[in-house]
Design a protein around this nucleic acid. Structure first.
Lengths: 220, 220, 220, 220
DNA sequence: TATGAATGAGGTTTCATTCAT
DNA sequence: CATGAATGAAACCTCATTCAT
C-alpha cells in the first residue's frame, strides 16, 4: 500500500498476460525476422511487427531499444542458427571428397530452405554491414566454418584428391556464392530467363551442378 | 522536405530555362540510380533525389509518374547498359575456351566496376522482382546473352573441349553468381572473415579463381 | 498534364488556403512563442502549437525543421523585438541622469509588459543557452544596448553626476536583474511573502525603487 | 525505460536488502534534485532518476506518489536548506551596515554556490508556482528572513545610517534579484555579452558591486 | 514547363505509471 | 519492501505526393 493517495488506478481485466520474458523476446524476434526479410530494413514497419506479436509495440522498444537494435538481434539469431547446424555436420567422419560435397550440398539446401536468412543478409549488405558491425556476438559465431573447411581441405590434399595451394576463403566463397545466388537472385533471374528456379526438380539439378562446380575446382 | 534556413524566397526572373527534356530525364535517372542503389527502394528519398537534381520534384512526377515508375526506369537503364556492352564483346572471333574465359572475366569485372548495378538488382530481388515485372523493355534486353553463350558453348562441344549435355542457363548462372556475390556480399563477408575483398590484388586473384571455376565446370 | 497515368487524385474543396508564406511563418511563430513561454521547451507540444495555428503541424517542420529550430526562431524574434524598441529610446537627447532613469524604467516596464520574453529567456537559461548558441543572428542584435549605455554613462561622468570607474556591463546587469526578477520570480515570491507583485500600484512603486537603486549606484 | 543489452535476468537471492527508509528517501531526493535542476520539470525523466538511485522506480512512486509529488518534495528540501543556513547568520551581533552587507553577500554567495537551488526556483516559476502552492511546509519556512531583515533595518534607521520609510520586502527583493540573476541568467548573458560571469574574479567583483548597490539604496 | 508551398497519413520513439511476483 | 515486466497514450517527425501560380 502506498503512503500517498494513489491517483486514478485503472483496473484491467485479469487476462492471462503474464509471460516469461524470454518467450516474449523470442516471439518478437520471430515476427521481426519475417518482416525484415520480407520488406527490408526501411520497408519493415515496427507497427506491423507489433501487430503480429502477442505483445505490444512498447515491448519491442523495451527489449531492443529501437528498430536498429531489433534488426541487429534478428541478424545475430539468423547467423547463430546456420552456424549451429553447420557445426553439427560431422564432416570429419567422411572421406574428403564426400565431406566437401556434403558441405556444398548442405549450404545449398540450407539457404534454399531458409530464404529469410538469405534475404536478411542481402538487406544487411544493402546497408553495408552497418548493423553487423554493431554486433559483438557475430564475430565469434562465424570462425568455425573456416576451421572445418580447412581440415577437410587439408585431408584432401594429403590424400592427393585435392589440388594443393588453394585458399580456404576462396573455397568458402565459391560454395556460398553458388548457394546464395540461387535464392537471392531468383526473382530477377527467373523473370528474365523464364526459368523456374524454385521447382523441386530445378533445385535438385542445380544442387548437383553446384556441388560439381565446387569439386571441379578442388579436384587435382 | 523542409525549407529551413532559406525563408527568403528569390523570385527568379523567367530566364530561358528551357532544357532539353531528354537531358532532364537523364539527370534525374542518374541521381536516382545512385540514391536507390545506396538506400534501397524504401530507403531512397524522393526529396533527396530532387535536391541533387538540376530540376525540381515536380519533374520527377511529370516524367516518371511516381517513385515506383522512377525505380522501374532506373532498372531498365541499368540492365540496358550491361547488355549493350556484353553484346559488343565479339566472342565469336575467339576459340571457345578463350571466349568463355573472356565472358566470365568480363562479367566479374563489370559487376565489380559497377556496384550500383549489383545493388539495384539486389534491391529488386528484395521486392521479388515486382518492378521488373512491370517493365516491357526488360524482356527484350536479356535474351542476347544466352544466345552468345549458347553459340560459344556449342562450338566448344564441337571442338571437344567442353563437356556435352550442359544447360546454358546453368553456365550463365554460375558465372553470374560468382561475379555477383563478390560485390553483393562484400560487406558482410569482409566483416565476418576479416578479408578485404575489394583490394586490387584480391580482385585480380578472385577473378582468376572465378574463371577457373567456370572453365573447370565446362571442361571435358 | 502528366505523361503517365496519375494515381488516385483526391480533389479537395477549394478552400481559401493560399497564404503568403511569411504570414504562415509569423502565425506559427506567434503561437509558438506563447506555447514555449507558457510550458517551457520540453513542456511545449508541437501538436498544440499546430492546433492553434491556421496551418498544420507539417508546416512547422517545413519551415523550422524541428522543435529546436522553432524554439531558436522564437528566441531570435523575441530578442529582436526588445532590442528594436530599445534602440528607439533616443537617450542621447536627455541629460545623463534622466537618460539613465529612462533606460532603467523602460527595461522594467518592457519586461513587465512582456512576460513571455522573460519566460523564454528563463527557459533558455534552463537549457544553458544551447539554442541561443545555435543562432547566428543573436550576436548582432544585442551589442547596441551596451553602446547606448556607455555613451550615457560617459556623459554623466564628464558632467560630474556619475562616479567614474564603473563597468558598463555591471550597470546593464543591475538594471536587467532588477527588472527581470520582478517577472521571473513573481510566482514564488508572491506566494511565499504574500505580496502581490503584479498590481498596478505595486508595479509603479517597484519601478521607482528600481530606478532609485540603479541611480544610487551610479551617483557620484 | 528499456532493458536493452541485459536480457539475462539475475534472480537475486533475497538478501537482507532492508534499507533505512529515510536513507532511501534522501537518496531519491538527492538524485531528483539534480535531475529536475538540470532538465526542468517536464524535461526530467523518472526513469533517469530511478536509474541513478540505489533503489527502483517503484520506490519513487511509493514514497512520493507521482512525479509532481517528488518535485514538491525536492522544492521543500531546497528551500529548507537555504533558510536554515540563513537563520544561523547571527546578524544581531553586527552593526546594521555590516549586518546588511553580510546578508547581501551571503545571499549572493549561497546562490552562486548552489545553482541547483536557483534553477529549481526558475523551474517552479515557469510552472507559476503551482507545486509550491501544494506544499504546506513552505509557508512556515520563509517568514524568518523578513523578520531578521526588519530588525536589522530598524536598527539602522534608529542609528541614523539607513533612510527611513523603506519597504522590507523591497530590500529583500533587491538583494534576491541581484544575487539570483547572476546564476539564473548566466548562460544567455554570458553568451550575448561575451562576459564570463562564473570566473572567480568576476564573482568577487560582482558580489561587491551587489553589496554596494544594496547599501547605496539603504544609506541615508 | 517549372517551382515553392502545402498536406494527410503514417512512421518511430518516449513517457509516466502500474502490475505480478 | 523490492524488482523487472508491462502498457496506453501521446509525443516528435517523415514521406510520397499534389496544388497554385
Amino acid at each position: 500500500m502506498s503512503i500517498v493517495k494513489s491517483p486514478a488506478r485503472r483496473r484491467r481485466a485479469p487476462e492471462i498476460r503474464r509471460q516469461n520474458p524470454e518467450a516474449v523476446r523470442q516471439d518478437i524476434l520471430t515476427v521481426a525476422t519475417a518482416e525484415f526479410a520480407e520488406n527490408g530494413f526501411s520497408g519493415a514497419r515496427v507497427d506491423e511487427i507489433a501487430a503480429r506479436t502477442r505483445t505490444s509495440k512498447r515491448m519491442i522498444y523495451y527489449y531492443f531499444g529501437d528498430k536498429e537494435g531489433l534488426f541487429v538481434a534478428v541478424l545475430e539469431a539468423a547467423y547463430a542458427r546456420i552456424r549451429e547446424i553447420e557445426s553439427g555436420l560431422d564432416l570429419a567422419g567422411l572421406p574428403p571428397m564426400e565431406a566437401m560435397r556434403r558441405l556444398a550440398e548442405f549450404t545449398f539446401t540450407y539457404q534454399n530452405d531458409n530464404p529469410d536468412f538469405v534475404r536478411l543478409v542481402m538487406v544487411e549488405n544493402i546497408h553495408r554491414g552497418s548493423h553487423l558491425a554493431r554486433s559483438a556476438k557475430i564475430q565469434a559465431l562465424n570462425v568455425s566454418v573456416l576451421q572445418t573447411l580447412r581440415e577437410t581441405y587439408e585431408r584432401g590434399v594429403a590424400d592427393g584428391v585435392f589440388r594443393p595451394g588453394l585458399d580456404i576463403i576462396d573455397i568458402h566463397m565459391t560454395m556460398s556464392a553458388l548457394a546464395f545466388f540461387n535464392v537471392s537472385n531468383r526473382s530477377t533471374f527467373s523473370l528474365i530467363f523464364k526459368h523456374n528456379m524454385g521447382s523441386r526438380t530445378a533445385l535438385t539439378r542445380r544442387r548437383q551442378a553446384v556441388a560439381e562446380t565446387v569439386l571441379g575446382y578442388l579436384r587435382r
